[in-house]
Design a protein around this nucleic acid. Structure first.
Length: 283
DNA sequence: ATGTGTTCCTGTCCGC
DNA sequence: TGCGGACAGGAACACA
């Protein structure tokens, strides 16, 4: 569900409400999401100041004054919404918790941050801040696609010799961290690379254009506030609008928009997930 | 080591 | 309007 652009949009929405502020109270309304919450999570969060809100791949990291970091993953259907901001001098009341509002933070000053996740594939955990990078969920993640480590030479070295289709290679969070089903499809189309192509068989020209293409798709999507299909919302409840810029995702049967390409977008299934691509211009 | 299929969970949509 | 099946933005895990 939420991929890197959606998670980054959520992080940016939380910054003005949480960064530098104190979590007055954490209300943990069930014992687990995908995994059990850490022992005493509510107590370990309540009263803590959020020193910084960072993102690693699809994880939001909230560094606390206790030198612990709250790790948040949205899974497939997770949302974070803010209510009760002080607008124009008036405090708006908080609505009653809704179905699937699993964790609620009341922030000093009156804002409320609500984690809602119908499918509960999301997760939260606490880890000492200086050890976050060795948390079992984060330790094997590949480089950030928008960072300097993600380069042409890096991609050539990790893809070399691999027989997986490119779709699976880019979905593999060890190769590059943060892409999901939508942005892999979109990036491969923009780079004119077939999702079925074996990773180890890419030409050097294809590898060379894949790096900036991935960065561009993600940056365009972040600028648009992410993509809203079903569940995803920005923290203020607004929809993202990058879905209007999809060239292939969920567009089976529609014409390819690559100039001079008269192809028709096709849907196939690769390792159990939908892939959309143009068989004509993606090689 | 690498690659593929199944699984977790709830909600929505589509055809009958 | 109800019912069954397919499908959904993730990714750990079990297995070939």
């Amino acid at each position: 569900m939420p991929e890197l652009p959606e998670v980054e949009t959520v992080r940016r929405g939380l910054v003005p409400v949480m960064e530098g502020r104190i979590i007055a109270r954490a209300d943990v309304r069930r014992p687990d999401l995908r995994w059990p919450f850490p022992n005493g999570m509510a107590e370990r969060l309540s009263g803590q100041r959020v020193a910084a809100l960072r993102r690693r791949s699809k994880y939001i990291l909230a560094d606390l004054n206790s030198d612990e970091t709250l790790i948040i993953h949205l899974g497939m259907s997770g949302r974070i919404l803010i209510s009760g901001e002080c607008i124009g001098g008036f405090h708006h009341g908080h609505p009653a918790p809704e179905k699937h509002d699993h964790v609620i933070f009341d922030i000093d000053g009156g804002a409320r941050v609500i984690f809602n996740d119908a499918r509960r594939f999301g997760a939260m955990d606490l880890m000492p801040t200086d050890a976050v990078q060795i948390h079992w969920l984060l330790k094997d993640l590949g480089p950030e696609p928008l960072g300097n480590e993600f380069s042409e030479s890096y991609l050539a070295s990790v893809l070399g010799g691999r027989r997986v289709p490119m779709k699976a290679a880019l979905l593999d969070q060890k190769v590059v961290a943060g892409l999901g089903n939508i942005y892999v499809c979109e990036a491969l189309h923009r780079a004119r690379i077939s999702p079925r192509r074996q990773a180890g068989n890419l030409s050097s020209a294809q590898i060379a254009r894949l790096v900036p293409t991935i960065r561009n798709v993600l940056q365009d999507a972040i600028y648009a506030g992410g993509s809203s299909l079903r569940d995803y919302r920005q923290t203020d409840g607004e929809l993202g609008y990058f879905q209007h810029s999809f060239r292939v995702y969920d567009r089976a049967g529609q014409p390819c928009q690559t100039s001079d390409c008269k192809g028709i977008i096709k849907r196939i299934v690769q390792s159990g997930r939908s892939t959309y691509y143009c068989p004509r211009c993606q090689r």
